[in-house]
Design a protein around this nucleic acid. Structure first.
Lengths: 343, 343
DNA sequence: TTGAAAGCGCTAACAA
DNA sequence: TTGTTAGCGCTTTCAA
């Protein structure tokens, strides 16, 4: 026997003493095969260690056997982020139950974009999960029109895709702001995220809604960019423009960290003078001084549900969009029972 | 024209008025095509928006057109980690220049392991980058014997693969320990990582070497498990067994965070009583109290170089293994110039 | 330099 | 319930 030649379906058929099509039927457990033949084929498969050739199958069935997780962003550094890693874990845990492979595309360069476009046009994947990280991404619209099944992770700012899974950014922001109201704050500011991202606008809306309901002024607003430095700058501006503020809802933990630093430098105690709530519950949030109250979102579930939704779609069914709940994680930056152990 | 039928090479050939093989030659820019025909084909490709069918090509050439990044670990949560995300970014940035797709496999379940094994046996990828996160992984040995090109990220504890990219864990640990010596500490302990991981043993070795060179006792050792809680427990044990210690090299930042907490609870000041150095330079390290001196490793480069090495291998050349330098990042947990701003 | 034709390994329509 | 046959779209000898 030739050691390097791969085992083909023909080999299996020959070994089992059946026709190739019979063998094929068994492999794909299709009907119309007698139990005797089926067993013979199964044994041959086992003995020979047969594994179907994915390319050949893909060519014959016009199904690729793989889905892609595509992240479209301007800055590749966006992906060097635990968020992204967790999404992959969620996605993988679902795909592991299927025979689909996962391809990852980070579409940031022109070349990457082109490839993603071609993939969408020419159906080189059975489905696409797309997370578009910046506003007004042409890829997003292109994907929506493609006849490849596409599931969005998060919603682009400019339109609502048919199929998406999103965290409840608006609800989370409302939760955060309501919490600030509940602990007695009345002059509540916000540092928003980028307003060309869905998460940015949604969180801003949540802030506005909560204050409207409480009958409080929602005018203490500075727009940030989701970065730590940007959060610091925004906080400084906020202090300059609204020195009376007694709380701030910051649309991301990264920005909140920058804001905490600026508050400390300005001699403001947290939460004494100013209570702070962040968003995302990143690992560092437990370790800031003081630890950061924040909104936690189920990132792995996001990946999980995206994959599930894509499977539903590829199987021909029509899923409905999904919004995953967020929750408040209370820490010392809003509850002053123990401001700091060393105080 | 049929709107949904994909454009094939035949379409291109017909449009350009040449044979299919001529068109194929142009596409793969092979020789033996007149300039006139070449141009005609190119134009047809452009006009028709032709993109080759990857499956068909794979079948014909017996090359898949994809490489896989496989992470083998016992606990899927290992991947929900920025480390992993950064490696992917590094890998992708290289692959983007080629025509290779990236597949990601998280081999943690039995099913995932099996798939990875089959992939290795049946050559369903043009190459594999394997990061094996736990000791004595059968996959690692299997991979090493496979005739699919395999590059390791990090070295398994039990053997040295032919092709690997690793961070200089040993050197980094030496750096960390030497730093503690340099700032005048003499009773330097360590909390090691898991000793069934390459990084765990290598960092322990580095610690030992540095102390040997300095002529100091390297007996203050407790083995940890790379987790925050484990680090806390190990620190407690260290304090119990060696109450005289004046410094500790902790083999990961996560463990160091646990250790810092235990030190504080025990009333030990950092770095006053005990200086602390971590490893990895995770994002949180800047925000602990006090900020953590640590060893930073070039994670994106790791991914980058793994991909490069794999390309070298697939092109038939023989690369040599690579060890990437680490560096010391000095923060307040070892330098007491300003212990704490609020002090 | 060119084109015809065989074949990669599989599936599926058809006939038996 | 079976087996025969014709492709899927591409590459690659081979002969012209």
């Amino acid at each position: 026997m030739n050691p390097s030649r791969p085992v083909t379906l023909d080999d299996v058929a020959r070994r089992a003493g059946v026709s190739r099509s019979a063998a094929s039927r068994v492999i794909n457990n299709a009907p119309h095969v007698s139990k005797a033949k089926r067993d013979a084929v199964l044994r041959a498969v086992h003995d020979l260690g047969y594994v179907p050739n994915a390319s050949a199958r893909a060519l014959a069935t016009n199904q690729v056997g793989a889905v892609v997780l595509a992240l479209s962003a301007e800055d590749p550094q966006v992906f060097a982020d635990p968020f992204f890693a967790e999404v992959i874990v969620g996605v993988t845990s679902v795909l592991e139950e299927t025979d689909l492979e996962l391809m990852v595309m980070l579409a940031t360069s022109a070349r990457g974009q082109t490839r993603l476009e071609q993939l969408l046009r020419t159906r080189q994947a059975d489905g696409v999960m797309l997370m578009s990280m910046h506003g007004d991404d042409p890829i997003a619209r292109l994907a929506e029109q493609s006849d490849v099944p596409v599931v969005f992770g998060g919603r682009p700012v400019n339109f609502e895709p048919r199929y998406y899974v999103d965290a409840d950014n608006r609800g989370g922001a409302r939760l955060a702001t309501e919490h600030l109201v509940a602990i007695g704050r009345r002059r509540i500011a916000t540092i928003t995220g980028r307003m060309d991202e869905g998460a940015g606008t949604a969180r801003y809306k949540g802030y506005q809604e909560a204050l409207a309901v409480a009958g409080l002024d929602a005018g203490r607003v500075v727009h940030g960019d989701f970065t730590e430095d940007g959060g610091g700058r925004a906080m400084a501006e906020l202090l300059a423009r609204h020195p009376d503020l007694d709380a701030v809802f910051v649309a991301s933990d990264q920005m909140a960290i920058g804001a905490l630093r600026v508050l400390k430098d300005a001699g403001k105690s947290v939460p004494g003078h100013v209570a702070v709530v962040g968003f995302n519950d990143i690992a560092t949030a437990r370790h800031t001084a003081p630890p950061l109250t924040t909104i936690s979102q189920p990132i792995q579930s996001l990946g999980h549900e995206m994959a599930r939704m894509l499977l539903t779609l590829t199987s021909g069914d029509t899923p409905s969009p999904l919004i995953l709940p967020t929750r408040l994680v209370q820490r010392a930056s809003t509850t002053s029972t123990i401001t700091a152990r060393s105080a």
